[in-house]
Design a protein around this nucleic acid. Structure first.
Lengths: 194, 194
DNA sequence: AGGCTAAACTTGACACTGTAAAGATAATCA
DNA sequence: TGATTATCTTTACAGTGTCAAGTTTAGCCT
């Protein structure tokens, strides 16, 4: 019927989107290059015109998802009236956790120890760092200083706060967890509890 | 030379041990049934005499590693003089994190969202639960009550504490993290910071 | 002791994976 | 227009999980 053109036209982006959709539906484990190719109506080797290998496509997909998360966190900062209040940090934490609760497969996909790089050393050297953590770190530095937290406690406090939020995301995206309660406020309580 | 007997004799356990060694050296991604079979000097289909499929072997391996972690946590409880002190919880947290720092590949392997079941609902129903969390929960309930923490804050506090420790394990087992500092005491500080 | 049964293992096959090489098509640019 | 080059297809191969059928042997029963 529809005479498919030989050239797809927008294959690179299509592969990224189809790949993410696949992760969302079947999880990281079920992901395969050939499935994604089929989803895009293209031969199994076509992806190699746009990505060096499977790993490179996965990285591009992670970039895309990570950017969504970054947008969410930046919006959270924007829409917070008082940018010096500790309330902002709680809101960022809530956004972070809710992002993964809404798409549980994103967590192991985006935060797999294999590829994730995180820099806890607080010095702002040029070391590559997980952007959401970098953003949280910068914001928290500002907020906590304004609150009058002693300088020598800043670093540990920030790591501790991020660990709590990140761990909460890890735990709430597991198998047996059910979201029958009002998680939005629940998460807020748990983070405040610090 | 050495005429291998047709029957391995202890294949089930050998597969589990060889599998764990493989995870430790090459990571979860590189794990394969056939590699483990070769490591045990046995044909590629031999594992199917002892495990229904790959997934079942992985589960048995996880059981084994999880038991190691449980032993460590139980020892930590035993060797703590004052079993009512919040210091005990910090020590448990430290043991938890150090366990994974010493074997980074264990974290994604043992805590992969795919198979891990965790029950945050605090009610002691018969629901399957991640044993290390169950142990931490029980201990923390006791300790925090003794400390006089109000009853309605117990649940959130325990989840928050475990999230911090678990998140810290997640973060410290990532790619770019270097352990040039004295992590043993560092981790202690971060947990105390709560 | 001798033989039967069932467990433990091997062999061979199949479908599915990632990836490389070589060829086909079509868009772009001189 | 014609050549170049990016994009896609086809074919091929090694590695994977899994199953079915055959082989070996341990252990039990009479």
């Amino acid at each position: 019927m529809t005479n498919k053109p030989y050239h797809h036209g927008n294959l690179r982006n299509s592969l990224i989107e189809a790949g993410i959709k696949l992760i969302n539906q079947e999880g990281t484990r079920q992901f395969s290059l050939r499935k994604v190719a089929v989803l895009c109506g293209v031969s199994h080797a076509a992806p190699y015109s746009h990505f060096k290998n499977k790993e490179e496509l996965l990285k591009a997909m992670q970039d895309h998802v990570r950017e969504q998360l970054m947008e969410l966190l930046e919006n959270t900062i924007q829409s917070c009236s008082n940018s010096n209040s500790p309330y902002l940090l709680v809101q960022m934490g809530k956004s972070y956790v809710m992002f993964f609760i809404k798409n549980p497969h994103y967590f192991p996909f985006l935060c797999s120890q294999l590829c994730m790089e995180i820099n806890l050393s607080m010095d702002d050297d040029g070391t590559k760092n997980f952007p959401p953590f970098e953003l949280f770190k910068t914001t928290a530095f500002h907020v906590l200083r304004e609150m009058g937290l002693p300088e020598d406690k800043l670093k540990d406090t920030i790591i501790s706060m991020f660990a709590t939020v990140h761990g909460l995301a890890s735990i709430t995206t597991m198998k047996n967890v059910h979201y029958d309660e009002d998680w939005e406020t629940k998460i807020e309580d748990i983070i405040w509890n610090k």
